[in-house]
Write a protein that binds this DNA or RNA. Sequence first.
DNA 1: GTCTATAGCCAGATAGAC
DNA 2: GTCTATCTGGCTATAGAC
Lengths: 204, 204
Amino acid sequence: MIKTKDISAEEKILNAARRVFENKGMAGARMQEIANEAKINKSLLHYYYRSKQLLFEAVFKTAFNKLAPQINTVLNSDQSICEKIKNFSNNYTTFMIKHPYLPNFILQELNRNPEFVKELISTKTFPSMNNFKNQISDAVKKGKIRPIEAEQLFINILALNIFPFIGAPLIKGFINATDKEYKTILERRKTEVSDFIIQSIKLK
Amino acid sequence: MIKTKDISAEEKILNAARRVFENKGMAGARMQEIANEAKINKSLLHYYYRSKQLLFEAVFKTAFNKLAPQINTVLNSDQSICEKIKNFSNNYTTFMIKHPYLPNFILQELNRNPEFVKELISTKTFPSMNNFKNQISDAVKKGKIRPIEAEQLFINILALNIFPFIGAPLIKGFINATDKEYKTILERRKTEVSDFIIQSIKLK
DNA sequence: GTCTATAGCCAGATAGAC
DNA sequence: GTCTATCTGGCTATAGAC
């Protein structure tokens, strides 16, 4: 029998840990800061999660599992190319405006520890590129879109959607935008990104 | 009078520090590891750079000053839009294939410490968006390209060029590419990226 | 389950010989 | 300028009372 208070404590920790790890990364985060953020005693972190490493992994996997399914939809759903691009761009940007540190956190830790990807891929049923590849080459053959490699298109879709969040500080500096102005720019990207891609791949 | 050996030691440290900081970040890097990498005694790091923080800043500014001028060219040179896109994409990708950890390092640290951007901007003569904005709105008015906001186009150019390096581990996982295959994909992006952008903004 | 106190370690920084 | 030895503080983790 699990008491409600236990669940609450565990969730408080996980949420606090998420906020701190997203900001500071694994190496920069401090267990004391997570405890403060969760408003609980530091030793409870160890009681519930044993070690910083395990707490981190719990946070990381949760974060990754929010990101990956959206990408999988692009690769493996039975939507048309156009629908995929529109839906993904809209959904992803909407989601990321609410969680702007997520992409940076995930990519940061994947870069530090690239072997981690394999682990994540092996646990989940990770779809191959095959469906998407066939869909693109079919569309090219049938003259629906201009010739383009599926991999390059896939990278472009990810880049245009994800980069505005990872690169926010840099972009803000260059275009000299306030946080509020940048937010507006991001809002417009919900449709801007898919327009940009579709304009590029459609036949003239 | 500076001995050649002094210069060599300082440079050895700076290069070693760059490699370690790029991989581990400020928080994850260890002075001992930098010393090992430079094959010098740990206390010499402090002799030359006083503290980890100062050594880090030296590395960071050097890195940023390699990245920023290329972006400035997009904003402020007198090339045509098309030339800018082609040159930047080609030059940037060529450069980054040689320094693949640079973008991740810079964006990581900017996200950890966003105020740092202002400092960097104030030291350098940072061009405003004005030139680029005028160039784009002129081209739109004259019917040379389809209507698009300069800020959105600028973000798209950066995203398509920079993301493939930051997101490499993630992309490799999804498209199931080996390091060698991914390198080939990146090579093709030297021209693929500019084609993609130009196809999108040109009039039908 | 929750707290205090502390063990044990490790990293940045410095003192001081050479 | 370069080395060894060491100080100092901070961090993860645990022991143990309640």
